[in-house]
């Protein structure tokens, strides 16, 4: 066994990476088509809409991709329930491999904050940091809010038979604010944490490679590595680094998404005062 080559530790399964890639691509399309319509009073928004066949074409794509995202979310729920049924419905929700937040995450947040301010040593993080759990549940909540209001708005005649017509005014504003929150969170905070931190610059490619460097994990997520070492699971989780061409593709994919996100972020901030809100 060539342990020298196996310097990396598996962090995400291919299924999880596929979910992330799907979400990433559809989220960028939804951001671009949504902003194209929101900014259609400006030349920037009109140029953006032209990429998708104009003002009405952007809506067609926005609705189609939105329905696809809702379907993918349902598939994700089925996947989560399948995993839970394998691990045990109640036991699967507990423990360090679960994404369910608990009081330990608040303690971890406070100790991590103390480390940021230089007051104590770096806390031993486990497999999921508190910010990663927050990101997961932010998307989960966002899918329900944006998907729900989006479906209402996409079929106004049908939805006005279920809710009063003024509910569509409410749905529109909830959809808009939640979308702005989601885009700002991804394009500023998620991109910063994944790409701009010194320890992971220019990109933490774990979500594309599926594995992360063992030494980095030993430093940052020591509780996770210690736990795997204690249970003897570490050997089965070690893996080799992905080949160079895959690394390059992953880097281009990730940085391409960053470029698109920053283009949308800067453009929408620059033109924010020129549209009717």
């Amino acid at each position: 066994m060539t342990t020298s080559a196996k310097t990396r530790i598996k962090r995400f399964t291919p299924m999880q990476r596929l979910f992330h890639l799907t979400l990433m691509l559809t989220f960028l399309i939804q951001s671009a088509t949504g902003l194209a319509r929101m900014y259609h009073e400006t030349g920037w928004g009109q140029g953006l809409a032209n990429l998708f066949g104009g003002f009405s074409g952007a809506l067609t794509i926005h609705i189609a991709v939105g329905i696809f995202m809702v379907c993918a979310f349902v598939v994700h729920l089925a996947y989560a329930i399948f995993l839970l049924s394998r691990r045990g419905m109640v036991a699967g929700l507990r423990g360090p491999d679960s994404l369910i937040p608990g009081p330990g995450d608040i303690r971890e947040f406070i100790s991590h904050l103390r480390w940021i301010l230089g007051l104590s040593a770096h806390p031993p993080l486990d497999r999921w940091g508190y910010w990663e759990k927050f990101d997961y549940w932010a998307v989960f909540w966002g899918m329900i809010i944006l998907g729900g209001t989006g479906l209402l708005l996409a079929t106004p005649l049908a939805s006005s038979q279920v809710i009063p017509g003024w509910g569509l005014n409410v749905a529109f504003w909830v959809h808009r604010i939640e979308a702005i929150l989601a885009m700002a969170h991804i394009f500023i905070i998620h991109f910063f944490v994944v790409h701009l931190r010194r320890s992971h610059f220019p990109m933490d490619s774990a979500m594309f490679d599926g594995s992360t460097d063992l030494e980095t994990a030993r430093n940052e997520r020591s509780a996770w590595v210690d736990r795997l070492t204690a249970s003897g699971e570490l050997g089965t989780r070690l893996t080799v680094a992905p080949p160079a061409h895959k690394k390059i593709i992953h880097l281009i994919t990730g940085l391409g998404a960053v470029a698109i996100g920053l283009f949308l972020l800067v453009g929408s901030l620059m033109h924010a005062t020129r549209i009717t809100w």
Partner: peptide
């Protein structure tokens, strides 16, 4: 939205600064 950014914007900026000034993250 305001609550999320009031918490995570300063958190992220300070975190970035901390890593910028530290040679290696961790124990």
């Amino acid at each position: 939205a305001v609550g999320t950014f009031a918490l995570f914007l300063p958190h992220t900026v300070l975190w970035g600064l901390r890593e910028l000034l530290t040679r290696k993250v961790g124990r």
